[in-house]
Amino acid sequence: MIEVDGLTKVFPGPVTAVDGVSFRADRGEVFGLLGANGAGKTTTLRMLVTLLAPDGGTARVNGHDVVREPEAVRRSIGFLSVTTGLYERLTARELLVSFGQLQGLPDARARAERLIERFGIGPFADQRCGRLSTGMKQKVSIARSLVHDPPVLVLDEPTVGLDVLVAQTFLQAVEEARDEGRCVVYSTHIMSEVERLCDRVAIIHEGRIRHAASTAELVAEHGSVEAAFIARVTAC
């Protein structure tokens, strides 16, 4: 579903933010990208969702190349990050309808209503997004990322700044997405989330994948994901 091969990004400076990153993620799987701040997680995912152009390597999402077929890639993905914003002037309902229409859905309103019901947005669906709490916003955000029913979800540190209860609801939604057969790429530096959600994990440090294995293998080898992470990063 996602095939990344030798992906590289060099920013002016020059700073090599991502250096030959390769990984695969499949349908019905949560693939974790684990790394400290500045490790290259966000840049990798931004290339994957066509927000940034790679300087080297290739990436395919749902069979589409991110450089040659960006529109087809975008049709296949739902993207959510800690920095993705909501239009504060629109209500939650208007926002979902608007994005449905932008995605070219013929039944954007009906789709919005289904998502409102599924994520429990109803009580605040007609409030402007600018007045919603962080948890409410995150519910609207994940509904927004699923509005066009994408087979792939790319989530970049989505629980940063959320309180524990809201984060739990969010993680539950990710599990549901996986159970529906979606491929989820999940970047984080929170070890407990990795242990709970991810089937496989790639540890990224200073722009390079240092280790890739299943979560179960990591825990078996080092006792915990955290111990595995520290061991792999300090070994660099």
Binding site: V49, T50, L51, E71, A72, R74, R75, I77, F79, S81, T83, T84, G85, L86, Y87, E88, F99, L102, Q103, G104, R144, H148
Partner: peptide, 13 residues
């Protein structure tokens, strides 16, 4: 406001 990130991943030319 970060909405560019939201808008630019929409499947639109």
């Amino acid at each position: 406001k970060g909405t560019a990130e939201t808008l630019l991943v929409v499947a639109i030319d």
